[in-house]
Design a protein around this nucleic acid. Sequence first.
DNA 1: GTCTATATCCAGATAGAC
DNA 2: GTCTATCTGGATATAGAC
Lengths: 205, 205
Amino acid sequence: MARNQEQNEKMREERQAMIRAEALRQFAAKGLAATKIKDIAEGVGMAQGLIYHYYPSKEDIYVELINHALDKMNEAVYNLAGMPEPPDVKIKMAISEMLKTIDASRDFNQTCRLIAGAANSSVLPAAAQELIGKKRDIPYQVLAGIMEAGQGEGTIIAADPYELAVIFWTTVNGLAIYQATRPDPIPMPPARILYNMFLVDRDND
Amino acid sequence: MARNQEQNEKMREERQAMIRAEALRQFAAKGLAATKIKDIAEGVGMAQGLIYHYYPSKEDIYVELINHALDKMNEAVYNLAGMPEPPDVKIKMAISEMLKTIDASRDFNQTCRLIAGAANSSVLPAAAQELIGKKRDIPYQVLAGIMEAGQGEGTIIAADPYELAVIFWTTVNGLAIYQATRPDPIPMPPARILYNMFLVDRDND
DNA sequence: GTCTATATCCAGATAGAC
DNA sequence: GTCTATCTGGATATAGAC
């Protein structure tokens, strides 16, 4: 009956979610080529062949993760852009939040590593390549917009806004990867050191 | 005769250098697992099997490249530390130099990507793992020393020197990777935006 | 749905002719 | 030294029993 079908659907999606979570861990740590289906299956405690009951191929899992990771990142950035605060405050908030997240969230760091690994690789599934091409630049563009607005208000330093956005993201990204690849994490540096880069008037809280 | 042996030796080393150069390109772009011996062989224009006349295995090539990359990076850092200039000037010089190098040198960016890829991977040949463990932290430590000296002279901002060193390297590294993974390179941002992060008195050249 | 067994393919490494 | 041909292992994906 319909009730049972619903339940089955739910079970199936839970299983898929488990597979995705395990795959994210492994793809983030080892990349696509070095991660074996067998490893993922062992990670979730099922037989190797059973994975194919839930996903048609290793690459499909990978592409789905990449897509989700990019969307998540972009959604967060759009949220930031839509806030009512003035641009310089947005930058300060964003950096503080990112550092906190890097410190606390394994999932976020894995997401960063996944995207970084994909961006750094020239051999990706065609679908992943396309997604990256389409969605990867959005955070840079949105941030550049915020920087430009801040320059209009005289709170952000004079420089090419896109270059400022690049500095912003490469810095945050670099820290996330640093943290994710160290056995013992270091405390994140004070956010003001980073956001003072962009501010006309330094903040010494 | 000895003359011929010398010549043969030289030829052999040249071939090995060609293999290393091609392998660096490919490992940097694709990582260890996704790079096939066949690709490297094709890149240098020799038969797949012939590679094994020059190197015992794919992993051996990789380990040699990792070792060389780490040594090159560390040598540059020791050079910087040994210079007579005051710490704040060293920081400014170092950032300016790095940005110039990122802009100009493909080889340097490939080296960055190789190290970053290795650091980001949890499945490395044992020998590579060991090398990374031993040599990877040196640049951070040396930079921390310079930061600390600058704090003593009152030119570098107050903060944990190691955290400052981490910011320094993750920023530079992030930019190098950004540049290396874009089809059309962007102009590097002005160095002062970056080094002003660390300076008590901002520099507005 | 889940497992075991297996077909198939691909890539690392070796052998042997030239 | 260089090539082609081949051995071998491992990994993806499928088949079929339960």
